[in-house]
Design a binder for these strands. Structure first.
Length: 736
DNA sequence: ATAGGGTTAG
């Protein structure tokens, strides 16, 4: 009987470990006789499958708890990131051993609560003070947060170092990207084991130093499976699939992880057939194997195949189902994604986040918000997703609320907020929060700088732009092409061509965006000659212009009055470059011809368009007609333009002014009244103010108010004052 | 059966 219970206990543990929780439950509930170990095993099985509340139910119901039961339950909380629950048990438990202490300290270090962890370490009972385990957990915690000095002083202070201590310190160096220090430390280590060597290989792989990784791999006295797999995946990450396969074939022993690593290598290089072959061949599969295969098929766009694999998977887990969800999300199939999401029995943070981010990407905001409200345990990623969602809905008020209420923020949180402001045209806010981010001790990355600089460009905030330029240099990004291009655009938009030119000259390998930025800058600032010259230089360098280049160069010609060169280039687009013409290109040419009064030619070009005309094309013709007083063509252009933009009052104003200039007052009246019809039907945007409990509404061009002249006068004064405030605000931003 | 350092997945 005892033998039987022992075997069944073992079986529960195995099933729990391999994700087959339902089978474990079956055995557990069928057992007529259970001992304490049975309950303990079941607690672990539940906890390992994310069902920590079920684990707790077992813990509460079990007849006799021993010390291991308490520790096991705490361990369950540890692996499910439930610190408070773990600590509650730790306090309540009748006696504690070294395991209990190590577990609770690890709980806090894994969640970044290092001060509390240190407190616990300091209150360690004397008999455990000399043991290494708790110290090691603490050192690993410091290392993970990049607090290297504290890790080091603990390491020096601890009474009995063991191999794990040395390896924890070594890992600290490696996690900080300090391979030089790691090398030195590694050389000084009194003893090393295979883990030490594996850490070094991993560090080199992370840095992209494959040669060093390989050199160290060859030097390992007794490499184990982990060493082989680390090296294999190092090759895979750097696209060296053949070398990876060679290692796989040479490995003396292979386990599931080795197979998974090799399959993943093929998936990373999109060789799905090779991956499938290995998947069929492998002796045993675990949930990871299935997940890799699902992801692999998603990567090559075979969603149905991926789904078939998921259906065939014997014991589905959250990761596999989430891989499928993210596949559906990538192809905008939200309903299918939702179906999978609904089938998950224990949803974790990642699955919720994937689903909510999916709704956000597909612009199904109501569903995103709804689902987010239902989510209980949100992490930083969850909050970041919601900041983006609200920003896309134009609700920066909500986005900001979330940002201020959320606990721990990361760089993505800041970037989401800042790009939200930019997206919604709140450029000053974007810059203000950029500076607050820096002030808060964060290092802005590429995308933060891109947002900040484009905000500066749009509002032509040269001084803040320069400030950002300094920060770029200080942050170690002076040679980043992406940022350089953003800087060039910023300087151009602020009218500082020399600075832009200087930056452009400093670039090692300019890409098409760099060339386009400067050519566009020349165009914007009316430097037609320079634009054409740069365009020629670009051709000499062998850089092929793209559609954006032509928009810039055509508009440069237009602004500078280089009509014939412009026409020549326009012809060349199809004849020389075989390029597809966009409506924007036509708009440029219409503008080019229109400016010099060649209205009929412009009209002919529009009539011969292969792509559909847009508002830009007709708008260009209309304003040319106004300049050159061609009322007939102008009327036609206006009519077409209003088909595209029936709500835009400025178009009506333009047309009515044309009539007025020609002295055709009845037509002026006609346009005005059609404008009124449109406005009446469209519910024009009205403004309102509240004054002494009374709401007053008013429309633009509304002069029916008593004292309208006085109101307008006051308004002008206010506008001037606001301009001053904006200037002051800009200055204050710089003071950070 | 439970802890501290190294490999494959969402």
């Amino acid at each position: 009987m005892k033998r039987r219970i022992f075997n069944q206990n073992l079986r529960i543990s195995q099933l729990g470990k391999s994700g087959r929780i339902e089978d474990a439950i079956k055995i557990f509930s069928r057992m007529s006789q259970k001992n304490t170990v049975t309950y303990n095993s079941m607690i672990t099985a539940y906890a390992k499958n994310g069902r920590v509340t079920d684990a707790r139910t077992i813990f509460d119901k079990m007849p006799r708890k021993n010390l291991v039961s308490w520790n096991t339950m705490i361990s369950g909380y540890l692996h499910n990131n439930k610190v408070d629950e773990a600590y509650d048990l730790f306090v309540k438990m009748p006696e504690r051993d070294l395991f209990s202490w190590t577990l609770i300290i690890t709980c806090y270090t894994r969640n970044g609560k290092l001060e509390k962890a240190k407190q616990l370490l300091d209150s360690l009972p004397c008999n455990y003070k000399k043991e290494a385990a708790c110290w090691n957990a603490m050192i690993a915690g410091y290392a993970k947060e990049g607090r290297y000095d504290e890790a080091k002083s603990l390491f020096d202070e601890m009474p009995n170092k063991d191999l794990v201590s040395w390896n924890s310190m070594l890992k600290g160096h490696i996690q900080n990207g300090e391979m030089r220090l790691a090398l030195q430390f590694f050389d000084e280590m009194l003893e090393r084991d295979v883990v030490s060597w594996n850490l070094m290989i991993d560090g080199f792989v992370e840095q992209g130093d494959l040669d060093f990784a390989w050199e160290y791999f060859k030097k390992i006295p007794e490499p184990n499976v982990v060493s082989w797999v680390t090296m294999l995946s190092g090759f895979a990450k750097n696209g060296k699939i053949l070398e990876a396969r060679k290692l796989f074939d040479q490995m003396p022993t292979r386990n599931v992880v080795s197979w998974n690593a090799m399959i993943s290598a093929y998936v990373q290089s999109c060789q799905i057939d090779e991956a499938s072959n290995l998947f069929e061949e492998m002796p045993e599969r675990d949930p990871v194997s299935w997940t890799i295969m699902i992801n692999g098929h998603v990567r090559v766009g075979k969603l149905d195949e991926a789904r078939k694999i998921l259906e065939k998977m014997p014991y589905k887990n959250v990761a596999a189902q989430t891989a499928m969800i993210s596949g559906y999300v990538q192809y905008n199939k939200m309903d299918e994604a939702r179906q999978i999401f609904n089938e998950i029995d224990t949803r974790d943070v990642v699955s919720w986040n994937t689903m909510i981010a999916g709704y956000t990407q597909c612009r199904r905001m109501d569903e995103a918000v709804h689902l987010s409200r239902k989510m209980v345990m949100k992490d930083t990623v969850s909050w970041n997703i919601m900041i983006t969602a609200y920003a896309q809905m134009g609700r920066m008020d909500r986005a900001l609320e979330i940002f201020e209420e959320m606990g721990e923020k990361n760089l993505v949180s800041w970037n989401s907020l800042i790009s939200g402001f930019t997206l919604n045209g709140l450029y000053l806010d974007a810059l203000k929060w950029f500076m607050l981010m820096v002030h808060d001790g964060n290092k802005p990355d590429q995308s933060a700088f891109a947002c900040g600089l484009s905000s500066c460009a749009i509002i032509a905030a040269l001084q803040v732009g320069r400030q950002l330029h300094h920060l770029v240099v200080k942050s170690g990004f002076p040679n980043d092409l992406f940022i350089c291009n953003a800087l060039i655009t910023m300087y151009c938009k602020c009218g500082r061509i020399p600075e832009a030119e200087l930056l452009f000259k400093g670039i090692d390998h300019a890409d098409i965006v760099s060339w386009n930025s400067l050519i566009g800058g020349y165009a914007l600032n009316g430097c037609g000659k320079e634009a054409l010259q740069l365009f020629q230089e670009m051709a000499l360098e062998g850089v092929v212009p793209d559609q954006v280049t032509f928009i810039s160069i055509l508009s440069a010609c237009s602004h500078a009055g280089f009509t014939d060169q412009g026409l020549e280039l326009f012809k060349g687009m199809t004849e020389v470059y075989g390029m597809e013409l966009l409506a924007e290109h036509y708009a440029c040419v219409v503008d080019l011809l229109g400016r010099v009064g060649r209205l009929d030619e412009a009209f002919e070009i529009i009539k011969g368009m292969k792509t559909k005309a847009n508002a830009g094309v007709w708008g260009a013709l209309l304003s040319a007609c106004r300049t050159h007083r061609n009322l007939e063509l102008g009327k036609l252009a206006a009519q077409k333009l209003l088909e595209f933009e029936p709500d835009k009052t400025s178009n009506y104003v333009l047309l009515s002014n044309m009539h007025a200039e020609a002295g055709r007052w009845s037509e002026v009246q006609e346009v005005r009244s059609s404008m009124k019809d449109i406005s009446a039907g469209k519910q024009p945007g009205c403004s309102w103010i509240e004054f002494r409990n009374q709401v007053y509404t008013f429309l633009s061009y509304d002069t029916s108010w008593p004292g309208a002249a006085q109101i307008c006068g006051t308004l002008q004064t206010l506008t001037a004052q606001m301009r001053n405030i904006v200037c002051l605000y800009e200055n204050s931003i710089q003071e950070f």
